[in-house]
Design a protein around this nucleic acid. Structure first.
Lengths: 230, 230
DNA sequence: CAACATAAAACTGTTGACAATTTACATTCT
DNA sequence: AGAATGTAAATTGTCAACAGTTTTATGTTG
């Protein structure tokens, strides 16, 4: 399966595809944070040699998904709670900027698209459809970041989101969280639709900061209850 | 010269050192943005094979200093004026966060250190010593970012600063620019010393935005006068 | 003389092999 | 039994060579 995907795109650029594939393997949870990555194992899996694997891992090292220890190899990066908070703080600043820029630059069609996304979330939120909500939520955030008209910003932001997925936690979306998040989304969209950069900056920044706090509260909670569940 | 440096640190980690060395070569201006990077040439220069070179370049690709075009190799990244603006905007957001966090967390000793740096800049500013001012200015910024207590933030910020060096421009620090910049530095330091996060956030963000505008004004100016100088 | 086709050179992408280091394991000693 | 030590296996770091592509140089044609 994975091999055929690599095989098909070989003509394009092998290590770039590899990067995505390895990323997928890591983020899918097959490799856990802290795990050592065996180069030969990956090479055999994709039917190639270790060279391209190492190049892909080097690249992922730079983007914070893996870490290299000299003479010991690559490890899936481990993100402590503290580090996750740090990433969230940076993400909040970037997302705030995205909201501000979007409010300055969004087109009329963009506004329609945004309204449609919000409407979709309204629907999912109304019936407590978590799975659907999470999906649209992702598209909503992606829309904001990619339409802010700043590729550097988009790249950095998406990189941080990837890093955050290394902070494994029983990410069960609670009903309360969803409703709170949804209210924030409305505030964000309102500010952007009103083309109010300052308000958008504040709303977008706040949304990520609030997300961080909800996650951390959730984590300490699930740690508290771990014994009863496992 | 470069070879001996590599030789000495070979025991530590070759490609990591290589990364710094190649970075130095690029940022020193020996390779210009848009230039193709010859792997063999670099390999010969450092007396090693192409493998580690490629690994280092892949890492630098991820951090935005070079770009890879399939089957054509690596090129020093070219930064358009628009892209430079984008990077500045992101940098402003990050630096604002750094200022805010620093104001929240700075220790008493940190405040003393900060005051000392400001005093040094005062001195250089008073006598229009550009070279000295630029140097301390760099240490000042570095202090802020590394003492904000958020390694992720520091890493991202420093990466952006490196990228900005790809935007070659006759970066002559004008007297007006220096004095304006200096005033902003005072406002930043004041906010941090007062441990006022909101004010620090605003002052630090503004400083980078103002720097961007000064640079851009400078650039259009120097473009205007290019013919007479070259 | 310019434009195009062709052949040679240069370069990148990838591989398999070898050296150096680390890890795992069995043996010995206290 | 448990710690220490030495050996074997596994793994990483590096290299040199080969295949495939791109670039350059050359020669030919309209």
């Amino acid at each position: 399966m994975a091999l055929s995907a690599v095989e098909i795109l070989r003509s394009q650029s092998l290590p770039m595809v590899l990067e995505q594939e390895i990323e997928r393997v890591i983020l899918s949870g097959e490799f856990s944070p802290g795990d050592r990555i065996n180069e030969k194992e990956l090479a055999d899996r994709f039917g190639i040699s270790r060279g391209p694997i190492r190049e892909a891992l080097r690249s992922m090292d730079s983007s914070g998904l893996v870490e290299q220890v000299p003479n010991r190899g690559f490890f899936v990066r481990e993100l402590s709670a503290e580090q996750a908070c740090d990433v969230y703080d940076v993400r909040a600043a970037l997302f705030g900027l995205a909201g501000k820029l979007l409010a300055e630059r969004i087109t009329d069609e963009g506004i329609e698209k945004l309204k449609a996304l919000v409407a979709e979330m309204d629907a999912a939120n109304a019936v407590d459809d978590f799975e659907r909500y999470v999906k649209i939520n992702f598209r909503f955030h992606e829309f904001i970041v990619t339409n802010a008209g700043n590729p550097t910003l988009a790249q950095q932001y998406l990189g941080l989101v990837k890093q955050l997925r290394l902070y494994r936690t029983r990410n069960l979306m609670l009903s309360d969280s969803m409703h709170a998040s949804h209210l924030e989304h409305h505030a964000m969209a309102e500010a952007v639709i009103a083309r109010d950069p300052a308000k958008a900056l504040a709303a977008h920044t706040w949304h990520v900061e609030a997300s961080k706090e909800r996650l951390m509260a959730n984590v300490s909670n699930s740690i508290h209850h771990r014994e009863t569940h496992e």
